[in-house]
Nucleic acid binder design. Structure first.
Lengths: 209, 209
DNA sequence: TAGATTGTTAATCGATTAACAATC
DNA sequence: TAGATTGTTAATCGATTAACAATC
């Protein structure tokens, strides 16, 4: 029974399922079950079946799930076959590291361009991606479809840059700045990678365990 | 009323509180309240008071909270004044970006050393941090206190490296590899930064909103 | 004092787990 | 067929929100 509103908790487990199923698939494993997946991932079989049932019926009584099929279903739900287009703003150390190493293509994204303010990098390429001046952002976005903007810029300019992009119609942000971005428009999606928050929770746990 | 076991949901909000309070503090704001914090952070006042009450009583009826004091209390809970020691394994693009840019000192961590397998970087320094050969890991850890290891290494060697480190007594991992690490020892803490998982949830949300 | 705001208890809501009929 | 495992409904558990006496 498909559900309308999927909770964030469920959505955040989907990539983990996808990862585990990809692993099984590459190891040549053909079938699995909620129990077996649960054991491998440290999740109850019950929760796995509940999670899947939000999106449809992917299994078969007595058999379980076909790994390749389930993997492709979950990938489809996540949108890995969507051909989303992405640009990056800020190609300092972190931005450059992502452009050089992160397998955007595995998650259904194509990186079309990047932008920076430094004359040293403008008009160069990083791993085949052209670097433009941020002055050209407006004109670029008007001429190209952009689904997601990666923000790898200094904190100080984060919210202002986001506002400018939202005005230009951008609705998806992958935010690496340690700032809580927000928009009055509920259609704008922010996904944050807060390094400092993450390390602080670890700090808490090693001190209080 | 202090609580014994604090839920993960609460712990993950603590760094956000700390961030917001640091911001208020730097802006010279002296007092705040659960309502005011809640409005700024998009959290109910009730939840904020519940969260704080897990750790003690930091406010005053009729007044609210002193920003500087509350900030320092939460910082203390998170352990920012703990002087934890940290080493990094793998100084490719991502590791180097973190060493050059991440303000470890703000979160109470000192980076003492880094390790890599590439002769090109061994015996160099990155932002003042020495790079050693991973061959020297065992002897280094035996001679130095290490609270957290940052894993910025290829997926393929992630679990094996973690196991080796756990055997050497390491109990905290900041894991940047896209692998779910685990240990039978419940004292071992893993904090994961899964870039791909994060981007996939964004992919889902822009497609289904 | 009157108004504001805390910390805490109780009520509600949502997410996880257990149970089980259906069926491959 | 017998055993296994699904999808779903019901029960439980935990987290969030509301209410309020206490008090600065």
């Amino acid at each position: 029974m498909k559900k309308e509103n999927i909770s964030d908790a469920v959505i955040r487990r989907l990539p983990r399922y996808y990862r585990q199923l990809t692993d099984l698939y590459h190891r040549g494993i053909v079938r699995t079950s909620s129990h077996s997946l649960g054991q491998e991932m440290n999740i109850t079989a019950s929760q796995i079946r509940q999670d899947f049932s939000c999106f449809g019926e992917f299994g078969q009584q007595g058999y379980g799930y076909n790994v390749e099929e389930l993997r492709s279903e979950i990938g489809h739900i996540l949108g890995v076959d969507n051909d989303h287009h992405l640009i990056m703003i800020g190609v300092g150390n972190l931005g450059r590291a992502l452009l050089n190493n992160f397998p955007f293509e595995n998650t259904g994204f194509t990186v079309d361009a990047s932008f920076d303010v430094s004359p040293d990098v403008i008009d160069t390429q990083i791993n085949g991606i052209p670097v433009y001046s941020t002055d050209e952002l407006e004109s670029y976005i008007k001429r190209h479809a952009v689904d997601v903007v990666v923000l790898t810029i200094p904190q100080a300019v984060a919210q202002a840059t986001a506002n400018r992009l939202i005005d230009l119609g951008i609705r998806g942000f992958w935010n690496f700045t340690n700032v809580e971005l927000s928009s009055p428009n509920p259609d704008v999606q922010f996904e944050n990678i807060h390094f400092a928050d993450s390390l602080l929770t670890l700090s808490y746990r090693i001190a209080n365990h």
